[in-house]
Every structure is written in structure tokens, then in C-alpha cells.
Design a protein around this nucleic acid. Sequence first.
DNA 1: AGTGACTAAATGCATTTGCATGAATTAGTC
DNA 2: GACTAATTCATGCAAATGCATTTAGTCACT
Lengths: 180, 180
Amino acid sequence: MQLHLVRYTDPLTSMGPAMKRKPSTEATAAWIRLMRIQSRVLDAVEQDLKKAGFPPLAWYDALLELSRAPSGEMRPVELEKQMLIPQYSTSRLIDRLVDEGLAARRECKIDKRGQFVEITEVGRELQKKMWSAYSAAIEKHVGSKLSDADAAKLCGLLDRLGCSCGEAPSLAARDGAPVR
Amino acid sequence: MQLHLVRYTDPLTSMGPAMKRKPSTEATAAWIRLMRIQSRVLDAVEQDLKKAGFPPLAWYDALLELSRAPSGEMRPVELEKQMLIPQYSTSRLIDRLVDEGLAARRECKIDKRGQFVEITEVGRELQKKMWSAYSAAIEKHVGSKLSDADAAKLCGLLDRLGCSCGEAPSLAARDGAPVR
DNA sequence: AGTGACTAAATGCATTTGCATGAATTAGTC
DNA sequence: GACTAATTCATGCAAATGCATTTAGTCACT
């Protein structure tokens, strides 16, 4: 349908060595759905959490990662890799967790550039409380709209776009769901 | 519809007045994938556009909506509804488009509270140029990883989460892909 | 016409993000 | 060991975002 674009709008497209193929209507539709639905569902879940008086989801993700780490501590760099967020973002997220008494910075003796971040008891408790509200929101906005079989299919299709998202499903579902 | 909900009853669920049903591992896994993959794919596409020297996707969406509107103009409120972004966000987006000469504010005679926003020739050109890069990015990050049949399946599954995202696929793909 | 409820859009202010850079430390190389 | 490159983390600054409020205009009703 957008053939006319290819045909005469853009001579650039046919020139470069970087040949630009146009997506099928199906692919485009999938892209749109992926963007719109994700945004809606995420919004809905975050709103639920917020209404219940909880901090943003990113905090949960960080607390979950920390709580899973051996002895509840990890390096910021590691956290950064797990959460797939930029370095400065991690740094500031940790700032806020520390400010709220949910985590603490510990000196790192083996590498003096770095540090360790350790989750506190309060942090662990918050993570658990949040999971209760969070899981309810997931059920409400995802689980209740899809059979398990369909959810699994959806996973499979999405995975092909990202080439695996790291974590085994069984692990992920054990006591929480990291997001980004 | 959601028979699986009724199937099992754990003690937790049947306790509170606020019935918190836990999601299945499949649902949780789907949620995680939806969040992570979307974020990755969106990032990848936005990066491609940025590297090509183009403004953010939101600009494209707005320009596309405007270019589709009869005589290339619409009310901010309408744009807001189409794009599913907050009112203040629309207001500022328009500011930026106007600053760059991509759109112009027009007086609205029938309702003096409001206004019309009209896309300029430059705006239309930018929209077309962006679509060329944008569509290439969609093909690269979505189309090339999924058969058309699978893309269609993915659409179907996602649609069930959001209960339709407004637009008919054929229309959406005609000359662009609005995102949020 | 006057009042109050409502809608369209803009804006002030605090918070958050993105980007680039800086400071400290470690690693690699000769 | 001295020098350069790479790493870990923090931060200043500009831009973007979210939220609440303001301004201006409309509408319904009496």
C-alpha cells in the first residue's frame, strides 16, 4: 500500500549501499501494536501501583535484583547490566533507594573505584509488599486477558524479536518480575 | 471467558475483600517479555532515527496525524486523543513543531478557546523523509525477524491485551505508523 | 443577562532524564 | 616503573516530563 512512497518519494532509498527494504503491512501492524499496547499496559500497571502508594516500578526491579544477589549486595555496574538502563540512571536510582533507607552503599575493597550496594531489611520488606500489588496488577491487565497457552505463544513471538531476554520464565516468576 | 481463573482457588486469593489473584508463570513471563522487548525494539528504532539526524518519533506521529487530517489541520484536543498523550504534552509538542516551522497555529473561529494546528509544506516533507528511515528501521527490527503470518499472530495476541488499538491495520500501514 | 459547571489550552514549578564530562582507580604495554 | 587506555561512578547543565493551576471561552439553565 505504501508502494507509492517507494516508487517516487525518495530517491535516497534506491541510491545508497544500505538498501532499505520496506516492512510488510503485517510487520508494521505488529510494530504499532507492540508500542501502543505495551504503553497502555505499562501505564495501567504503574497507575495501580501508584494508587496503592508504592514507588515506581524501576525501584521494584532494583530491589528484586538486589534481594536475589548473594548476601543481598551487588555492584552498580552489575545492576546496570541486569536492568538495561544507562549508567547515570543507575547511579541516581541508587541515590534514591539509599535516601529512602531501602539500600546502603558499601565500600568495595577489591576495587576502589567501585562500591557495593546492599539491600536493607526495609528494602526487602518493600519488595515483598510491592510484589503483592504488582502481581495483582499483572494478573488484572495481562493474565486475565490471555489463556496460559496464549501467553506462552506471545512469549515465543516476542522472544524472536529480542532474541531472548535473559531470564528463564520459571525463575522470573518465582517471586517477582523485573521489567526493563 | 477467563475460565482458568475459576479453576483453582488458593487460600490467599479467597481471603481479602480485595481479591488479589496471582498471575500464572506464563502470564508473568508474557508481561516481562512485553516490557523488555518493546523497550529494546523501541530503543533500537529511535536510535536509528536519531543517527539519521531525525527528531523523536513523537514528532513523526504528530506530523502523520496532521498530514492525514482534511486540509492538514486539526484541533490540539483531537491530536491528543489520537496520540494518547496528556494535554500538556500535546501543547508542548505543538510548540516545538511550530518553533521548527513544521506546523503553524491557526485561529479557530468557531470556538475561541481553541485553535487549529496546520502542518506546513516543510512538515509534510519531513514526515515523508522520516517514514523512509522509520520504515526501514521497522523492517530491520521487526519485519526481518518475523514471518508475515507470525506478525499477524502477534497482532492478534497483543490486541487482546489492549482491546483494539483504534486503528485498522490497513489504514495504519498505508503511509506510516503512529506509535503511542 | 447572570450564574455556575465545563472544556480548551498554556504555564509555573518541581522532578526526572539525557548527554557530556570529570575524578579516581585499575589494567595493559613497553 | 612510566605511560596510555579503559573502567567505575558521580555530577553539572539543559531539556523533557508530570502535576496542579490559571486563563479564557462556552454552554445550560434560570
